[in-house]
Design a protein around this nucleic acid. Sequence first.
DNA 1: ATTAAAGTTGAAGTCAGGTTCAGGTCAAGG
DNA 2: CCTTGACCTGAACCTGACTTCAACTTTAAT
Lengths: 165, 165
Amino acid sequence: MPNSPSLTVAEVAQRSGFAPSALRYYEREGLITAARTTGNQRRYERIVLRRLAFIRAARNVGLSLDEVRDELAQLPADRAPTTADWRRISRDWRVRLNEKIAAIEALRDRLDSCIGCGCLSLKACALYNPDDILGRQATPPGAALLPPLLRRPIGSIGAEARTPV
Amino acid sequence: MPNSPSLTVAEVAQRSGFAPSALRYYEREGLITAARTTGNQRRYERIVLRRLAFIRAARNVGLSLDEVRDELAQLPADRAPTTADWRRISRDWRVRLNEKIAAIEALRDRLDSCIGCGCLSLKACALYNPDDILGRQATPPGAALLPPLLRRPIGSIGAEARTPV
DNA sequence: ATTAAAGTTGAAGTCAGGTTCAGGTCAAGG
DNA sequence: CCTTGACCTGAACCTGACTTCAACTTTAAT
């Protein structure tokens, strides 16, 4: 049973929306794999598109590549994740997002309490001392709250997907 | 009328919570200034503490140093900002925070609609295509959603302020 | 057979927001 | 006067997630 027709790096780049350089980088970092032709060029199986979609979604939620690699390691590499897999991950991601929302809301509420005050006292100003906004482990060091994707210049995000996985 | 007694870099560092290296960096970047002794050592006026408190608050809200510099440029350098100044800025910051909250809530809602689905279709998955989450200019490139302060290792944030400004 | 497009590599560059270091100077107490 | 700790500078380094570059090779179409 021959595998699905393999994809070149350009094809994967176009269909996933990642630059070829990013695909190479992800391969070096162990997030994706690729077979090679006799001439050493990469040939991807179609399943890599699903993996890349997972990577992009995880990055959108704010995971670092290290965290994404950890989550990918718990997923089957050669076939689609089960519904149970996805349900577990979704719940985890939902918690992360809710924590981030709560953190920013707390900061906003502190700001509200400061409007017109302008004290900015190093001792008393609530806006200045956000030490109890986040619970333990709410945002692990290195995880940006809003990931790079959402900060990209407008217009660079859409029109990436061409074929369903 | 002599100025308030000047502070050494170590004193400012302790009272503001910024490392001396950060204070030097901010000076190079034009966010703060310092007088010099005959021996070329920095001596800060007390007003710099308020300025640093402003910088920290702004960073907490997610502004880049460039943005902080712009806002500081509109504030009086040698005395406390007026209530009107502070009110204007507070409102601006509140808008920024609300935009960020809205962006993450939208992402979370998309995730909710995906739980148990697991499709991650490049064509259809809402989680994967967040292109309309943010309005124009909602998060300018370079502005992290949650600033570095809130990502620092737990325990490094509190106990910074010693004396009121 | 030719040739242009697409692919390969490792090394280096980018960005923000700083930190660290080496090598030297200043300030203040005893 | 002497020592010790605080301070000075410029340059180099750090993180994360990539991109860019130079130099070279492979693939596919003609």
